[in-house]
């Protein structure tokens, strides 16, 4: 499906390489032969109208679709050269390396500390309480939340504001030291100020992680991402440098979407 004229799906130093990825839910196909590379240490944004398969694609990369009955994923996805759709690959291990942040902030109904500590604990990443304390602190610091919550670590994470909860979820995702972070519309439930903080955070995090973000906001995609892929009806219509997609789209459907003709 590579159309070299309109697509630059392949890049030089990819973190994740997706080829011919198709997904169907109980026989109903939702994604058609997706080819897409995710670059290292940069932000890739996925845009497109609702129901075009952005979330579905995102969930392929950490095999979250495994837990959906009737969902079948075919094709090839490799992370750092390792084929992850292989049955040999343990989805649980994969999800440690490919973390996820969801649309609606979903902290565990536990303390702030336990929210962060849960991942490292179940993966056995830390030895002893001191090390765990340190992981919790650095994760919260990286998520820009430490100053706000350091005095209330034992209070429930659900008691934070929406924006703080989402940053807590980001901290929870980075606590297991992933390589890739998938974010599915992470700001759609947040107010503009909280959104700005999360965007800053994403910009910060791309130095350490490869990030894929689904967003409905063109401005957000333009602000935070280096590469953008436009999805439509289960295919990638166009992918390229964010700058190029927004200033000089090659496909008229992309043009129509970013200028607000549909979506």
């Amino acid at each position: 499906m590579l159309d070299s004229e309109t697509n630059s799906a392949t890049i030089a130093d990819p973190k994740v390489v997706c080829r011919d990825v198709s997904v169907s839910y109980s026989g109903k196909q939702a994604l058609f032969d997706i080819d897409l590379d995710i670059g290292s240490h940069q932000v890739t944004s996925l845009i497109g109208p609702s129901g075009c398969g952005k979330s579905t694609f995102l969930r392929c990369m950490n095999r979250m679709n495994d837990v959906i009955d009737g969902c079948v994923v075919t094709g090839s996805i490799s992370v750092d050269g390792v084929e992850i759709l292989d049955d040999e690959i343990d989805a649980v291990q994969l999800r440690r390396r490919v973390g996820m942040v969801f649309q609606k902030p979903n902290p565990f109904p536990k303390s702030i500390y336990d929210n962060i500590a849960y991942g490292p604990r179940i993966h056995g990443l830390v030895r002893g309480k001191d090390e765990l304390d340190e992981v919790v602190q650095t994760s919260l610091e990286r998520a820009g939340l430490w100053e706000e919550v350091k005095d209330r670590l034992l209070q429930p994470g659900t008691g934070l504001s929406g924006g703080q909860q989402q940053r807590l979820c980001i901290a929870r995702a980075i606590a297991v030291r992933p390589d890739v972070i998938l974010m599915d519309e992470p700001c759609s439930a947040l107010d503009p100020i909280a959104t700005a903080r999360v965007e800053e955070l994403i910009d910060e995090l791309k130095r350490s992680y490869s990030i894929v973000i689904v967003t409905h906001s063109m401005q957000q995609a333009a602000r935070v991402s280096q590469r953008t892929a436009f999805f439509h009806l289960g295919i990638v219509v166009e992918v390229g440098e964010t700058e190029q997609i927004f200033t000089n789209p090659r496909d008229e459907r992309t043009q129509g979407y970013i200028t607000g003709r549909y979506g």
Binding site: M64, V92, R96, G99, N106, F108, A173, A175
Partner: peptide
């Protein structure tokens, strides 16, 4: 809520861990 299950799966909990650590206690 399914969001709790997703959160737990998302950080790499196994199916049994999702159920015993999160769903059943709740």
């Amino acid at each position: 809520p399914p969001s709790i299950r997703e959160a737990a799966f998302g950080v790499g909990a196994s199916e049994l861990q999702v159920v015993t650590h999160h769903v059943v206690p709740l």
